[in-house]
Design a protein around this nucleic acid. Structure first.
Lengths: 196, 196
DNA sequence: GGCTCCATGTAAAACGTTACATGATTTC
DNA sequence: GAAATCATGTAACGTTTTACATGGAGCC
């Protein structure tokens, strides 16, 4: 029985997922998980470094020191065979209920108490941010598809595409919702039919 | 200077938002914030009780003891005038960037390593859950609209409607995404055009 | 007799953010 | 010469989850 069975966290699986594509330093991984570029998971370097140490203790990754420019030795991490199979097994596990916490919908729930003009202004600012993100995602999708040809399911690009399409769908839903709320605030009441 | 300026947390605002609609015990609030019914925020009772104490110390809520069936005195909480105006002011503040952490998309990002049949099975189970939730939300929307007539923006039902419509849009987006992934796994490759 | 509902609290652990700390090289 | 980039780590704090603890009333 080698390797701990300590149960790897979601963050650990995020790091494994990135490392399975290519080797990287903790710094690289942190950069890719910095908001809002890493739009499926976010983490700061202070979480990443200890987690990499834990993954290594569990035998899921290894590192090798390479020449670098930091005051401490620069470490390049790679997934082990055990790490790769742990990741593959975890992928198909049931993700369970997601705790949906949404700070915008939380505000919406108390909108009836607020100043409607101020609320509409806040929402319009938000709309712009969502529209900008949607454009980024669409651009990113085009980049993934740029080479042309079919993208098979076992190609890492397929997973990248799935990820970006989740982002695109989400932003579109968000835009539609914000527009619904703003138009209701403008007319003073909710539309009586939304064509469900 | 009365009242602390300690900065109320999101949870605190969630509780204020519920209490602004009607008075309730900590137990009631916990029940309404239990997943998945409270689909804009979730919390367990061990978070709710201390937070209510903090809100009271800040002068945003008060309580009165009522006859109840617990081993300790039963407390019914209500928002104060200060609580109501703090809530109204917070509603229109910019919610900032949401850290989007999505355990399903996190899995999708490593899907290329997994067994496609197992992945499709997991996703089909998930699809059912999303479809069931969507039905619940649509039913809830019908209930809100049941009385008929226009729902003005300053009616608490308007905010409830905004909340449920966010849920409906989200579930539809999720269903479409899951279907996209499952169909790609079934055909073995991503569709070459998604009609963007 | 056992289970669920009511009703409140505390404690420990896990997870996440922000701040502290260090220091060479490259770019403006 | 100031700022950003590379590169790693620890510490303090805040938030969230899970577990412990108590006890009466009503239902099967």
């Amino acid at each position: 029985m080698s390797g701990r069975t300590d149960k790897t966290s979601d963050l650990g699986h995020a790091l494994l997922g990135l490392l399975a594509r290519r080797e990287a330093t903790g710094y690289d991984l942190s950069a890719r998980l910095a908001a809002p570029l890493g739009y499926f998971w976010t983490a700061s370097h202070s979480q990443v470094y200890p987690e990499l140490a834990r993954l290594e203790a569990a035998g899921l990754v290894t590192h090798e020191e390479i020449p670098g420019r930091g005051p401490r030795p620069t470490k390049r991490y790679a997934v082990t065979a055990a790490g790769r199979s742990a990741l593959a097994a975890w992928v198909v596990t049931d993700p369970g209920e997601q705790a949906d916490r949404d700070v915008l919908v939380l505000r919406a729930y108390s909108l009836w108490l607020a100043d409607p003009a101020a609320a509409a202004a806040m929402l319009r600012g938000l709309r712009e941010r969502h529209a900008a993100r949607l454009e980024e995602y669409l651009q990113h999708e085009r980049e993934i598809r740029a080479e042309g040809g079919e993208i098979a399911w076992d190609d890492p690009r397929f997973a990248a595409l799935a990820r970006v399409r989740a982002g695109i769908g989400y932003e579109r839903h968000r835009l539609a919702w914000v527009d619904w709320v703003v138009s209701a605030l403008t007319t003073g009441h909710a539309p009586t039919d939304d064509a469900n």
